[in-house]
């Protein structure tokens, strides 16, 4: 029985994750055709409900839904109803009346996609809720990882940055571990959860972390909007301590380590400029794979079915 909603990675079995990743492959193959569209969701409607600003995730979902022939409506929340004081509940009632088949939702409040999912027959896809989850990011990261390392078991990924506030870290860590990948965190002591998942080493020192021999260094984006909080002194300081500097990049390239980043990159903060042309940078691949992974998710769900 197909799932109705896609809310997090944690509740999926390894088999379900592997199936979604396998299904993303034929979708990605469509991108090389001159006609990139298929009629699988013809006549279905997909509503993008974004309470937080997003360009990449929103357009990735939009392209994914359109390539499946769905009709896409972007409900531009910050500029419309929230300003008028409409509650999320009112919005959901409106959406119900519109008989939309799929709702892609992003909200700063963790758990909101779940409560929407409970109130509607539409399939709900979590596009990021607070610091909780960003499951399609996790899936596209796993897909990208598996393209490079088809045998995932025992491989190593080092996630670097503000782990504590990052839903990307959470979802990507969860999905990789489901695939048997070993994950470690590196970041300022204040930004790496003290009681993180069991079996995930925590590093605060870059050199120490590199001795752990990761296959991939995954850099989280420094969220500029959080910089008012005194988590680290300055961007320059961050780059010096946790960024991939020119010097560190030489070592990374020398050891053949791959680089991932969810985008958009703050050049000169998480990464020095040279990394952008690095042959083992998977950042562009992550963007392309995001569309395929999201098509696979949309295709796997059945609106109105069992949750």
């Amino acid at each position: 029985m197909a799932r109705k909603d896609f809310l997090d990675i944690a509740s999926l079995s390894r088999e379900e994750v592997e199936l979604l990743l396998e299904q993303a492959i034929p979708f990605k193959e469509l991108f090389t055709r001159s006609v990139k569209k298929v009629p699988a969701l013809k006549g279905k409607s997909v509503l993008m409900l974004f309470y937080e600003p997003s360009t990449r995730t929103l357009s990735s979902f939009e392209v994914a839904a359109k390539r499946l022939s769905a009709d896409v409506t972007v409900f531009d929340v910050p500029h419309s109803s929230v300003v008028k004081g409409e509650s999320v509940k009112d919005t959901i009632d409106t959406l119900q009346a519109m008989r939309t088949d799929y709702i892609v939702v992003r909200h700063k409040q963790a758990g909101l996609p779940l409560s929407i999912a409970r109130q509607t027959r539409a399939s709900v896809i979590n596009a990021g809720d607070g610091a909780h989850a960003h499951p399609t990011q996790g899936l596209l990261d796993a897909f990208t990882f598996k393209e490079v390392f088809p045998e995932t078991d025992g491989r190593r990924v080092l996630i670097v940055g503000d782990i504590l506030h990052s839903r990307v870290a959470r979802s990507t860590c969860t999905v990789l571990r489901k695939l048997g990948v070993e994950v470690a965190f590196l970041g300022p002591g204040s930004l790496v959860p003290r009681h993180g998942p069991e079996g995930v080493p925590r590093f605060t020192d870059y050199e120490e972390a590199m001795k752990w021999k990761p296959d991939v260094v995954y850099l989280l984006r420094v969220q500029m909007e959080r910089l008012d909080a005194p988590f680290f002194p300055s961007l320059r300081e961050y780059h010096k301590v946790y960024g991939v500097t020119e010097e560190r990049f030489k070592r990374i390239a020398g050891e053949g380590i791959y680089i991932m980043h969810p985008g958009p990159v703050n050049r000169g903060v998480e990464l020095c400029h040279a990394v952008m042309d690095y042959e083992r940078s998977l950042i562009d691949q992550q963007v392309e794979n995001g569309i395929a992974a999201r098509m696979a998710v949309l295709y796997s769900l059945k609106p109105g079915g069992e949750r």
Partner: peptide, 20 residues
């Protein structure tokens, strides 16, 4: 041809895709 079937809406689970 899974993505081109005319009965996807009526299926409880979409067929598993393979590469073309």
């Amino acid at each position: 041809i899974s993505l081109y079937r005319d009965d996807l809406s009526h299926l409880e689970q979409n067929p598993k895709l393979q590469s073309s």
